Amino acid sequence: MAARIDKIVTSGAFELDGGSWDVENNVWLVGDDAEVLVIDAAHDAREILTAVGDRRVVGIFCTHAHNDHVNAAPALADATRAPIMLHPAGAPLWGMAHTDRRWDWDLADGQEIEVAGVRGTVLLTPGHAPGAVCLSFPDLGVVFTGDTLFQGGPGATGRSFSDFPTIIDSISTRLLTLPPQTVVHTGHGGDTTIGDEAPQLDEWVVRGH
């Protein structure tokens, strides 16, 4: 069985710095008919479980620890017995969302995660949030970027725990070096490609300053 990618969109609130915003999040599932990796368990564990079906969940991968990307992770982990995976630098934000539970596995730059016969490589890409990571699957020609890179620009850096020069460095050194045809699956909104975003780097830098 060949690996495939499924997407569901869940809705809820993003909360930080005393504010709350209604958001829609992309939840990505990479796998086959037997097993699946969930990327960013957002808002609604029941909806994610419906998409998973009877497949074994090998892990719950968190691109970063903003509440809207991890708020359904513990419930999903309890239902599936799958480990929650997060870079340890995301601990301060994780603690804001979950005061009574830690994630299960520490992610590290360069770590490989295998599911359905394909391997994903963890890319450390801080800036939008501490410990933000992307997950690149070269054999599938895709990279999951969370809130680091979107169609038309980098993720937001105007709130606590974020930094614009850092996210630009992450994008330029870790993402724009991927093959230009690589499809970018984002944490919110539509897809793009590395080739479509790379020419805009200088414009982002000017705009960001």
Rank of each mutant, 00 (worst) to 15 (best):
I194T: 05
T182N: 01
A73T: 07
A156H: 14
G153I: 13
N25S: 15
L149T: 04
S11K: 15
D44N: 13
R81I: 12
A51T: 07
T177S: 00
P180C: 06
V23L: 12
T50L: 09
L107C: 03
T145A: 01
A41H: 07
G18H: 00
I167F: 03
G195N: 07
A91C: 13
I194P: 03
F161R: 05
H209G: 15
G53L: 11
D109K: 07
P180S: 04
W21M: 14
S11F: 13
D17P: 14
G155K: 04
A3H: 09
I48L: 09
D6M: 11
W103F: 14
M96Q: 14
T173M: 11
G146A: 08
L140N: 07
G141K: 12
A2V: 09
D54S: 10
S20E: 04
V23Y: 06
V142I: 15
Q200W: 14
H98S: 06
D196T: 15
T80Y: 04
D147N: 00
G158F: 10
H188K: 15
M1N: 14
T148W: 07
T186V: 05
E15C: 00
T173R: 13
A3Q: 04
L178K: 10
G95P: 00
I5G: 07
L140P: 09
H98C: 03
T50D: 06
A13D: 02
D109T: 09
D6H: 01
I168G: 02
L135C: 08
G127L: 07
G31H: 03
R4N: 08
V38D: 11
F61K: 05
E114I: 09
V206F: 10
R159C: 12
V27C: 13
N25P: 02
N25T: 14
G189W: 13
C134D: 07
T10Q: 11
E114T: 14
D54R: 13
P130V: 07
E24T: 10
M1S: 15
F14M: 14
A65H: 05
I39M: 15
H66C: 02
A129Y: 08
T173E: 06
P92G: 05
G53A: 13
V30K: 00
L49T: 03
D196N: 10
W105S: 04
